[in-house]
Write a protein that binds this DNA or RNA. Structure first.
Lengths: 171, 171
DNA sequence: GTCTATAGTACGATAGAC
DNA sequence: GTCTATCGTACTATAGAC
């Protein structure tokens, strides 16, 4: 991340990263499938937290309630605001990094769809709820790291989920 | 697309594509920024249709109503079911193509957010509605090309939007 | 650890259309 | 004469094969 900030992602070569880390290029590619992947280390953990939350939500919870527990469950991940902001600056600077971020988000949605289905939620409701939930998650994260924001992630996510219910309750 | 089906996307070189098209590699890269982009030709048109629909929706329409008009507006694009299915088989076979598809979808969401904001919809409602709308769009498209489906895209999209209102109207 | 294919870039030349 | 389209070549870095 130091190098990506210094020279830009596209201008940073794997050779430079490997050198600063004191390893060879080959070793770099042993740890990360490609240059982008290193910025998305925590994604499996995030996914696991959300899936577990859905699986563990009350039996009488609606699909959207389950989504709510998933949004709550990842609060512990989003604490270091400065680091999240820095990381996002890098991602926003490069289109291929945005692509990678989006596929992570999509895998998340797919995993949540599966967790809902495991609870007996039928299609297309499972997909619909998961997609919507990830949408809320994304907006919540973006709001959290937005300049000037003082609220915590968890609070924002809860507010947005409530807002969603209002928005979709229109005439 | 012929070559991508014959040999697989990853196994197809730009040289082969250029040869079959009767041009040089250099010319290929004049038309497409990269190997993936050629599969996403219609995306600007799709985006324009949706943005125009939102902009042209009735003044008293709720954000979600505007989304509804956008979902309707693209019905004319999704007619050739066989071609859409073939294209999706290719995309689903390669992760980098899925990434590209997702960034197109994300740009769509961003554009719709802007169109809603232009109508006076404030944040975070604009983002929330746009994200949700794109989620519905995606599920609708997937349902449309799913094996065995006999419904048209427009009908599916309408049903799903109605379904969404129910899902988010929970206890 | 070594080797290599290929995507993608940079810069430049040429030539036809109107 | 200007604009636009194709082609030529050399090069780098990624990423995969072995």
């Amino acid at each position: 991340m130091e190098l990506y900030l210094e020279r830009g992602f596209g201008q940073t070569t794997v050779a430079q990263i490997a050198e600063r880390a004191g390893v060879t290029e080959r070793t770099f590619f042993r740890y990360f499938t490609d240059k982008r992947e290193m910025l998305f280390d925590g994604s499996e953990r995030l996914q696991q937290l959300m899936v577990d939350a859905v699986a563990g939500s009350p039996a009488d919870a609606t699909p959207l309630d389950s989504i709510g527990t998933a949004l709550d469950a990842v609060g512990s991940v989003f604490v270091d605001l400065t680091r999240s902001r820095t990381r996002q600056v890098i991602i926003d600077s490069d289109e291929s990094l945005q692509e990678r971020e989006l596929i992570k988000r999509d895998r998340l949605a797919t995993a949540i769809t599966g967790a809902l289905r495991d609870r007996g939620v039928e299609e297309p409701v499972a997909s619909l709820a998961a997609q919507t939930g990830i949408g809320v998650f994304h907006v919540a994260f973006a709001s959290w790291i937005a300049p000037g924001n003082t609220l915590g992630y968890a609070e924002i996510a809860r507010n947005l989920l409530a807002e969603l219910r209002i928005v979709t309750n229109g005439s």
